[in-house]
Design a protein around this nucleic acid. Structure first.
Length: 426
RNA sequence: GGAGAGAUACCCAAGUGGCUGAAGGGGCGGGUUUGCUAAACCUGUAGUAGGAUUUUUCCUAGCGAGGGUUCAAAUCCCUCUCUCUCCGCCA
């Protein structure tokens, strides 16, 4: 959520920034400003009347004590009318407040100045390439065929158990998955992140806090009793400190958490239907930070570096791109994607998304800190990123580390998590 | 799933319709006394959100959350959340 005071004082800037995301926000912004103006007048009016009511109510008590019953009854009649009047106006104000909140919650974050302008992912800016895609001297397979031949990956069984877009892992496949996320967790813990294991379902308030609700409900699996399955551990982890005052000396706070992620993928029929790339359930290790505003940019780059380090250690080729304004996620002010090289498709695929949310989430969540010098409290900045998506890492390892005979060499850093196994073969 | 108890400020806790935005204690801040410390005494101690005004103050909301009754609610009524105890069930 943006700061309404900032919007009032910087209308032109906000409009320009929102338009750089999408033109449709122009109308929304006009609506907001209009409603805000009206609602403030209504507030002023009602608070005035309430003030009068409060004063007069106290008079009733005095009159009662002094036994001036006639006067009291007279006043009582007047106050009933006044109260009635207030009630009517209050309902009107509540409606205005509701539409105001609704719009506030559906306006995205404004991009930072160095975010490149653009409409789609074609306009994203490639920052750097790391590692050389390996040249194979044989016909390579994709991870689905490789996994199937080794009997470690089975999408038919996944479909039988649950449906399409579900994976099933077996034997060294299951073990490799476990090795990958354990390795990721251990690496991040070493970097000073605190490991957390959270609920994999969360309530509505949590989803409003991080920005998935109210706009993106159709992307979520909804359960009974008002629970939603988490689409990323970002939701529970960022909500750890909802409605809290943090101590400045504890910042930055850094968490790493593993979770399965559940996504309906409602808008992606027919896209990436094969393999581990886009499933309803996948594992992910997530990094989340709460930082002081002045450290936002630096901490984002640090987090990006922590995510990249996983691929460095796994010796997988990748590139880093900076998302353009049109491709930016709803809550994000700046995002770097990490894309891993997939040899069969001969393309880079997103494996991590690292974002700085400025105070957008913190304002929705109400996470503040009190600085030691200023007496004023302010919202923290939140940052998060995948570190990394485990399923896609699994796929990338299979494809990049495949051998002519269909076996898979285990990346060196993972071997200690797999009883020193060097190769998965038939 | 059944039965009961509870949620008040940093902490403990009083408070069943108006002089309570909150007694009392602890803690913390300041002061007096004092060679220093301690003790004693005095004194201060809602942070917040919103609106107006602007640099000063005023107003509104706020006693777990949300509704309701009333001129007036921490207090009465309803719904919900969480915590605790007992029974049942269960990994």
């Amino acid at each position: 959520m943006l700061d309404i005071k900032f919007i009032r004082e910087n209308i032109d800037l906000v409009r320009k920034k929102l338009l750089s995301r999408n033109e449709k926000y122009a109308l929304l912004l006009d609506n907001l400003i209009n409603i805000d103006l009206k609602r403030r007048e209504k507030i002023k009016d009602i608070e005035n009347l309430k003030n009068i009511l409060n004063d007069k109510s106290k008079e009733i008590m005095t009159l009662k004590k002094e036994n001036k019953l006639d006067e009291m009854n007279n006043l009582l009649e007047n106050l009933k009318e006044l109260k009635n009047n207030i009630d009517i106006k209050q309902k009107d104000l509540n409606e205005a407040e509701n539409s105001f909140q609704e719009i506030m919650l559906s306006i995205p974050n404004i991009p930072l100045d160095d975010v490149p302008e653009g409409k789609t992912d074609k306009d994203n800016e490639v920052i750097k390439f790391v590692g050389e895609p390996k040249k194979f001297d044989f016909d390579i397979s994709d991870h689905v065929d490789l996994g199937k031949n080794l009997d470690i990956l089975d999408f038919e069984v996944g479909a039988k158990i649950a449906g399409k877009r579900f994976a099933f892992m077996k034997g060294f496949g299951a073990k490799l998955e476990r090795a990958i996320f354990t390795f990721m967790l251990d690496t991040h813990i070493e970097k000073g992140y605190t490991e957390v294991l959270t609920p994999f379902m969360a309530n509505k308030d949590s989803f409003y806090g991080t920005g998935q609700l109210p706009k993106f409900e159709e992307d979520l699996f909804k359960c009974q009793d008002n629970f939603y399955l988490i689409p990323t551990a970002e939701v529970p982890i960022t909500n750890i400190h909802r409605k809290e005052f943090l101590d400045e000396k504890n910042l930055p706070i850094k968490y790493v958490g593993f979770s399965p992620c559940f996504r309906r993928e409602s808008g992606s029929y027919g896209k990436d239907t094969r393999g581990l790339i886009r499933n309803h359930q996948f594992d992910k290790v997530e990094l989340v930070k709460f930082v002081k505003p002045c450290d936002g940019e630096k901490e984002l780059l640090d987090l990006l570096g922590d995510a990249c380090k996983i691929l460095d250690l796994l010796e997988l080729p990748y590139r880093v791109v900076k998302l353009c304004t049109g491709d930016l996620g709803f809550s994000s002010a700046k995002t770097y994607d990490i894309e891993v090289w997939m040899p069969f498709a001969k393309e880079y695929r997103e494996i991590s998304s690292c974002s700085l949310f400025t105070d957008f989430q913190a304002r929705r969540l109400s996470v503040k800190y009190k600085s030691s010098d200023k007496k004023e409290s302010s919202f923290v900045y939140t940052i998060n990123g995948s570190g990394l998506a485990v399923g896609r890492t699994f796929a990338a390892i299979l494809e990049n580390y495949q051998e002519k005979d269909g076996s898979i060499t285990i990346p060196k850093v993972l071997r200690k998590y797999m009883n020193n196994l060097e190769k998965i073969s038939k």
